[in-house]
Design a protein around this nucleic acid. Sequence first.
DNA 1: AAGCTTCCCAACCGCTCTACG
DNA 2: GCGTAGAGCGGTTGGGAAGCT
Length: 271
Amino acid sequence: MGCQPLEKGKPKHKKGLWSPEEDNKLRNYILKQGHGCWSSVPIKAGLQRSGKSCRLRWINYLRPGLKRGKFTKQEEETILTLHHMLGNKWSQISQHLPGRTDNEIKNYWHSYLKKKEAKAKEMDSHNQIKYASSSSDTMESSNSLKNLATQGTQSCNFTKEASQSSLPKLLFAEWLSLDQVNSANSVDSFGLRNGFDQNSTLQEAAIHDMSDIPFGGGYHRCLANISAPEILNSELKYANQMAENGFIHCVPGVDLMSSNFSMSNDAIMYI
DNA sequence: AAGCTTCCCAACCGCTCTACG
DNA sequence: GCGTAGAGCGGTTGGGAAGCT
């Protein structure tokens, strides 16, 4: 993409673990020159790696601002919540966990959270059986639990469906980002306005310890406490406020409020 | 202490998307 | 409009560490 490969036809790339020297070479080069075109990075940096491998090493390990170590309870809950809504969209999930990489989150999911969620589901189904055999009141609460669970699944499915269909889509992460884009008129239904700019490329470099920053706390707490119905309500609220703020009117030829629009498809993707 | 199993994480692979000529 | 190459993403794998028998 406007990036000329410096040398072609010599795929003698080293594989396997990176040595500290290689790390240093790559880090020094990128900090001085920027990565530019990844395919040329290994050559210019004097590495026998593929550009792809360099990119991955930088993103997952060398990049400044990466958090190492254990995931916090808040991060864990954020991952669970977002995974419930987005599915395996690790890169999107990672956008909401500053200092964490998609790879890290993915690994954490496969090694720990997946089991945890499976356990929780199991417990949930046990509870439902229990509730089903008791009074109608508990029946109702059981149903609402069930609904809650299925709503989560639905929102997950809707994401999948939306991504598969030709219809435009808005993922939750994108929807969140609208808050920044449209900050003057933005909704604060999630209390998200903390100055976090997910589009900023400097953001990652600036993060050293997000745990001290309001975003880390407020946002995580916020997400972790959201239930599926709250999310849906917030979406509707968001749609209404967009209309009130004249946001939707920005879309030429689209009368979303009078048409039979669905939040999952029509409204936001015109933005 | 040795052997075996499980877990975790870094890295690779293959695919899709996108920009450019 | 088409082909090509780079970037990015999600799934998978391999090897070392940790835990267990």
